[in-house]
Amino acid sequence: MPGAIREALDALPLVDHHCHGAVTADLAEPEFASLLTEGEAWPGVSPFDTPAGIAVRRHCAPLLGLDRHAPAADYLARRAELGWQEVNRRFLTAAHTETFCVDTGYAPHPVTSPAELAAAAGARAYEVVRLESIAEAVAAQGIDAAGYAAAFRAAAEEAVRRPGVVAVKSVAAYRTGFALDPARPTYSEVTRAAALWFSRGGRLTDPVLMRHLLWTAVGLGLPLQLHAGFGDSDLRLHHADPALLTDWLRLTVGTVPVLLLHCWPYQRQAAYLTAVFEHVYLDVGLTLHHVGPARAGAVLAEATEITPFRKLLYSSDAYGVAEFHHLGALSFRQGLAGLLQDRVDADELSPTDAVRIAAWTGRDNALRLYGLPASDPGRD
């Protein structure tokens, strides 16, 4: 059965269970460069000279009609020549993704809506509601602190009733970190914390209100996505270790699925949590396009050491540049195919099981978890 695993993954229409929109404007060099990295732009240091930038020049340039490893200047010129709509179409269709679950709560740039992303890709799209955005919108309404808890719950319930919403998400890892008291806060605690927040303004960063947000999420009944690990400079990485959620996860057993997103460098901690809690799942998300196909297999290998195979999902977490929707999918396919083939070659896995695991991870686990229809209604 030589090559069957790679062939199966290449042919598999993926479900990208967490991503963002692609920009709806042509990008000048500084704007494009800023979207290639999670970090800041540094004078004299090109974001093209990173693993992600090198992978873009190697794997994305041919889709623009350029040679592999095209110089950055040629790449940017060709991108500008084609225009953002054609660039988005090429990369989104190349990703061969049948379904996108789109986080609409982060948009510092004008980006495609879920429907626009789906149209460009020839796919379907659903919405993931970011709960911090809901909470901050409620706070901006000028309600009093005593009414905050009920108002946030009502607004969150209204948001998840929108057509096409399949999950909610929190960025607690950014705002407070995960070292939170796991207990559900009382009404009095929430009211006092809301009064302090309203007096100072700004983003939701209060630990009590974050605990309230997470417990409210549990009550909404939809899968809950949690950013974990790798992110931009707004994050304190050691506070984003998902193992810090252990006590809270113990209290929420039997409630909603909890999806740990991205996780690097804590993919092993996340794998442990999937192995001991029935409601915990993981992906390695944006890590894939930042390490590129060259190292995607290494990250996935650690994530799959003890993770039950029905608990690993695919996501790109692509934002802004459609290159990352394509590069995430490519890195996932190549990385997973390589590690599964290695296990088959070592006679630790049958070829049939390897193909089945590939389909579960790239598509079927997400379809089952989010209750999504498959493109082929005859498939089980």
Rank of each mutant, 00 (worst) to 15 (best):
P223S: 10
G231Y: 10
A358G: 15
H325N: 08
W360L: 15
E302Q: 14
L369F: 03
H212K: 02
A155R: 09
R89M: 01
S133G: 11
G3T: 05
F100P: 02
Y370P: 00
L180T: 00
E7Y: 00
N88H: 11
A118W: 13
T287M: 06
I306N: 12
R184I: 03
R124L: 01
E116Y: 07
P377A: 12
H212Y: 13
G371I: 06
V280Y: 13
L372T: 06
A121L: 08
A121C: 07
G177L: 02
L27W: 12
G285M: 09
T112P: 08
Y266H: 06
A135K: 00
H17W: 11
F152V: 01
P51A: 09
T176H: 01
G83Y: 07
A270P: 04
G83E: 06
G39R: 10
L64P: 10
H290K: 14
F91P: 04
H227F: 12
L261A: 03
Q341Y: 02
Q225K: 05
V218P: 09
I357E: 04
H290A: 11
V128M: 09
W42P: 03
E305N: 10
F152S: 00
A346F: 09
L204G: 04
I306W: 13
G202S: 11
L82Y: 12
R236V: 15
P163W: 14
G202M: 11
G202W: 12
A271N: 09
V284G: 05
G44D: 13
A240G: 14
V284L: 05
E31K: 01
L27T: 10
Y266N: 04
A95Y: 07
L367Q: 02
G65C: 05
T287I: 02
P110I: 10
M210F: 13
S233L: 14
P2R: 15
V276H: 07
L244K: 13
P377R: 14
N365G: 05
P223Q: 12
V258C: 00
K169D: 00
